[in-house]
Simulated scan of single mutants.
Amino acid sequence: MPRDVLEHSPLSGMDEYPIHQTTDPIRFLNTTDPRAFERYWFSAQSDDGELFFVCGIGLYPNLNRCDGYAIVVQDNRHTAIRAARTLGVDRSELTVGPMTARMIEPFTEWRLNCAPNDFGLEYDLAWRDTKRAVFGRQGPTEIPGQMNARLIHDWCGYETFGTIEGAISVHGKKFTLTPSRFRGSRDHHWGVRDGVGGAGHMLQTSSSSHLGQWVEFGDWSIWWHRVLYNLGDARQGAGKITPIDHKVRFDPVTRHLVEAVITNRLDNGEIREVHYEQIGNQIAYLRCGMYTGPDGKGTPAENYHHGSIAGDFIGGETFDLSDPAVRTEIAGFEDHLVRATCNGESAIGILECRNPVIYEMCEKGLPGFSFL
């Protein structure tokens, strides 16, 4: 073990820096809620939609866990790798299994790596921000109809878009990523959210779904309920965007999203309608990355959730997305790669939702949701 673990615990090397916010060592949180988390998420997609990449790494200090995953979708093959380890005292070490995320310069540049492994997925990527990251709060959210109940969500963080450069290899096939052809989104969130730790810590099952928009146009972008501006833009901070109407079309077999028209109101009162069309079966099924789906479902094979895996673990698989039965089996929390069009401008982006919950919301005619 490193010397600071053996001799200085519960201190870590981070405690040498003047960054303390409480009277505890850095490794301790200001909450004892087991669902506390801190997570990084990255995506990358080619401008023609051929290759779709998603990865993430999360820390769960009150569960003493760290886990991460990566997913590549190409030519109807969905390849995932996931790993977990004991967190220990050093929360600055963003390595789990063969995967590593390393910050080069704050709000500017990251390196993402995955070493050779048994699941056919490797990468070596340089990420560079293009939009201004702005702090924002997402919670708290309480259980409807209950008083003095534990919060479902209470979290915050920031988001941005960027370009990606480097290489990804999937089952021996190598793809070269260049900044002119590959773009993506990343976020860094922390706080408390449901789904962390699995069934023993879960407060509710999902009866509704968000329909998140992550798309970067030339001089503006949508990340959920925020408008992000280019680095150096004269407009300060970030703008606000409110989706006011969602018209959605679904696959008649799986009842999963394939197209949407979302009408958004900007904070200046302007209305912008964005048309999203799914690109083939380019969908990242995030249950394979340990996100929780409807009815409390975790990973398709093991039913793992973020923060739920004890000890060291490396796993993964490849699915054939040309089979509707496979897509139905692994669905529950999805990032759909889409072509987005607004005011004559087109871009590659992501729509995020829970399938088939989003279909059920349109079927019920919930306010703001209907069939396209």
Rank of each mutant, 00 (worst) to 15 (best):
Met1Asn: 10
Arg3Leu: 15
Asp4Ile: 13
Pro10Leu: 10
Leu11Gln: 08
Asp15Leu: 09
Ile19Thr: 12
Ile19Met: 12
Ile19Tyr: 12
Gln21Lys: 13
Pro25His: 10
Pro25Phe: 15
Arg27Ser: 06
Arg27His: 14
Glu38Ser: 10
Glu38Gly: 12
Tyr40Arg: 08
Tyr40Asp: 00
Gly49Trp: 14
Glu50Phe: 15
Glu50Met: 05
Leu51Pro: 05
Cys55Pro: 10
Gly56His: 05
Gly58Thr: 04
Tyr60Met: 02
Pro61Cys: 06
Asn64Tyr: 12
Asp67Gln: 07
Arg85Met: 03
Thr86Glu: 10
Leu87Ile: 01
Ser92Pro: 09
Val96Thr: 08
Gly97Trp: 09
Glu109Gly: 03
Gly120Tyr: 09
Tyr123Met: 07
Ala126Asp: 05
Trp127Lys: 03
Trp127Phe: 15
Asp129Met: 07
Pro140Lys: 07
Ile143Lys: 09
Met147Asn: 10
Asn148Glu: 03
Asn148Val: 05
Asn148Leu: 11
Asp154Lys: 06
Cys156Arg: 14
Ile164Ala: 04
Ile168Arg: 04
Pro179Leu: 06
Phe182His: 09
His188Lys: 06
Gly197His: 07
Gly200Ala: 09
Leu203Arg: 09
Ser208His: 13
Phe217Gly: 02
Phe217Ile: 03
Gly218Arg: 12
Val227Asn: 03
Asp233Tyr: 14
Ala234Thr: 14
Gly239Leu: 07
Ile244Thr: 10
Asp251Ile: 05
Arg255His: 15
Leu257Ser: 01
Val274Ser: 01
Gln278Met: 11
Ile279Asp: 00
Gln282His: 12
Tyr291Glu: 00
Pro294Asn: 04
Lys297Pro: 00
Thr299Ala: 10
Asn303Ser: 13
Asn303Ile: 06
His305Gln: 01
Ile309Lys: 06
Leu321Asn: 02
Asp323Trp: 12
Ala331Ile: 01
Asp335Met: 13
Ala340Glu: 00
Asn343His: 10
Glu345Trp: 12
Gly349Arg: 02
Cys353Ala: 11
Glu363Leu: 15
Phe371Met: 05
